[in-house]
Amino acid sequence: MIDIKKEIQQDRRAFIKKVLGGTIAGSLLLVIPATAQEVAEEIPGMRAEDSVFTKKKFVFIVDITACIGCGSCCVADKAEYNVPDHNYRTWVERYIIDDHDGVYVDSPNGGLDGYTKPREGLPYPTRDTFFVPKLCNMCEDPSCVQVCPVGATYKTNDGFVLVDKTRCVGCSYCIQACPYSVRFINPVTRTAEKCTWCYHRVRKGLLPACVSVCPVHARKFGDLSDKTSEVWKILHEPHVISVLKPDMGNKPALHYLGLRREVV
């Protein structure tokens, strides 16, 4: 009898111990949040790259025929970099071409608030109308790098044109030199700034912010040395593909699908 009682006693003790242990462990799990799992790599093989420059060749493709002009890309871009108001690293233009070949372009607040009104007061009926998102063209021969007097703007071996905030003296030569007007002087830091194709995200294996938020997949980003990538397929198959201002000789890495000749 005494033995059995003892066993129950022990069992009870063990049971209480287990219950208490479980409760404490459970409540601890609630207090200490589970460490955020890392999101899956969006650019294949990116996290394995550990050298200074990647061995990839990145291109950006904007599909004009898909863009709905919602301005999500502009919202994402502003949020990612805290871009000061009235400055735009990327923006969306609305083109209207009438049947007399007149071209009308507008971009209220860079498309940041979306397009809320139709364009009114045009003299002739509209023949064609579409949205053109603009961002850094990441030229192979960038004019901005050539004119920078202090070596603040440079092109990496893997094709990104970047601005060194600590070197830039804010002389604005690059802003004049850029044929695509993508640069501005940040009123807070007083240095030149522009779209970087989200270099910091790309190096961490994430897609640029604007690409990842685009609801209609009008913005595409990828590695041209990877023959299975979507961008490789687009640039190696019959499509209406063009770059902006090809005559400038800057050889942009930003391509447009379905670009009309009226777009500058």
């Binding site: 999101v39 200074v52 990612e80 970047l162 910091h200 994430l206």
Partner: peptide, 21 residues
């Protein structure tokens, strides 16, 4: 690596990611 501050590549990589997926 060229006429620029090489250490800036590391600085550029360390820009905080604000938008996730």
């Amino acid at each position: 690596y060229g006429h620029y501050r090489g250490a800036d590549i590391e600085d550029q990589k360390n820009v905080p990611v604000r938008l996730q997926t």
